[in-house]
Design a protein around this nucleic acid. Structure first.
Lengths: 251, 251
DNA sequence: GTTTCGGTGATACGACTGTATCAATGAAAA
DNA sequence: TTTTCATTGATACAGTCGTATCACCGAAAC
């Protein structure tokens, strides 16, 4: 409590300009600040040169910061809704300061848009990984089931993803920039499903495209009902099995 | 600009207490206020006694105020999202003062819950009216189509209703009181659809319950895609016709 | 005449929100 | 040594939010 903030430079003791806004000044000039920096660097070099240098900042360096913050947005949106994702709240959840969020995303709108972008990439990545982990990639019915299951809240990850997804969906209804991200991303899901249905050998008289359209949107809606508690997960899976069996007759 | 607010009673000219909070006082006591009231009533009675009396307040008196305000909430939610529905914004949209909204709903949360309640009643009313207006009530396929079309944004009314619905849905994921309203309301839609399918003569081997589940949630999802611009309304109707034709074979 | 009652006008408070500003930091380049 | 660069810390500002408070209004009851 001795060297409290005086109105004198810490190095040359010259009087320093008063700043009514922003961070209070401590040095009278950039050179005095550099001098102080070198002094500190010297002290530090003696005992902890290597330790203080690297520190890749827990979660991938460089633009890993952006990802770290985006994940905080996802968590908040999933648990408390997008309207609870204020700048300060996101910063706290990510364990960084408000200024860091501002710096890396510019504005709140930029933050939301970027977080949605990263979310789409992440979801694609996860879905691809899960499909690659299937025991028999030639079993087209299993592949189809895996694709559709991706929209059901089967585990905490998918549950959270669905919640974030619908929260963003609603927001995009009144925010063109968010709608853009939605439109430029998820066209091919229905086409993928339609292709799988056609390849797997659909029952005669069925239209793979129309079946895929209702299946995809229906599964999303059923998943939302599960989130709500309006339906059981088991019930939804039974319904899904029924329709898969109807579209793809056994062998 | 002559009789500006002095610190004297308007009637007896006694000094009046200073109030740092709330509306500034004008009378020194309740009796002086009543005196002023009677004086005004006397003047008014001479020329506009009947005209000033009734005035049911444009839209149904009594608890019509609540409805008027709830409709403002719906409009704002449909056009700018639920997060834009602040107390002041709702009051302005409804053409009343902030205090009136506070008085009739107590808190913002109470406002949102009540508005959702009234919305459900309104939607039921509209759906019932549209079904009653069908040309041939015995044509079960037409009735089924009408029920499902209720979830598509076919006109501005349904478009708006769907937007408000999904906005509230998302909010209900993080608000138990809203979720309650959802759960205690819309169970029987799927049962209604399933009943219609069974009565209309489904194709052999089809399960009306499972078909209804996918149809209802699927139609909702497709309607949301239309809102988004991800799908054409015509495309959705074609898909819907396809599935109706599949479930209910022609004659 | 005074009180009571449902409803409303006019402020005010404190907590938050998004954004802006100024300065410091650590390291590398000039 | 001085400058530059990308990043972060520490505030400040103006506005909005939900809510609370006090007084007024009209009319009916006592």
């Amino acid at each position: 409590m001795r060297d409290e903030n005086q109105d004198r430079c810490r190095v040359c003791a010259a009087p320093l300009a008063v700043a009514v806004r922003g961070r209070p000044p401590v040095y009278c000039s950039r050179s005095c600040q550099a001098k102080a920096y070198r002094r500190r660097a010297g002290e530090r070099g003696g005992r902890a040169a290597a330790a203080a240098a690297g520190e890749p900042l827990a979660g991938g360096a460089g633009q890993g910061r952006r990802r770290q913050i985006a994940e905080a947005v996802w968590r908040i949106a999933a648990e408390r809704g997008l309207e609870a994702a204020s700048m300060r709240e996101v910063a706290a959840e990510a364990g960084v300061s408000l200024r860091v969020v501002q710096y890396h995303f510019g504005s709140k709108h930029g933050l939301l848009v970027s977080a949605l972008h990263l979310l789409h990439e992440e979801n694609d990545r996860r879905a691809r990984a899960r499909m690659a982990a299937l025991p028999d990639p030639a079993d087209l019915r299993a592949v189809l089931g895996a694709v559709l299951n991706e929209f059901l809240p089967l585990d905490e990850q998918r549950r959270s993803a669905l919640r974030v997804f619908v929260a963003y969906y609603v927001r995009s209804l009144t925010d063109p920039a968010l709608a853009e991200v939605f439109l430029h991303a998820s066209q091919p899901v229905e086409q993928l499903v339609a292709g799988l249905i056609a390849q797997a050998g659909a029952a005669p008289g069925t239209d793979p495209g129309r079946e895929a359209d209702l299946l995809v949107s229906g599964v999303t809606g059923l998943g939302m009902d599960v989130l709500h508690g309006r339906r059981t997960l088991a019930d939804v899976r039974t319904t899904l099995d029924y329709h898969l069996g109807r579209i793809l007759p056994v062998h």
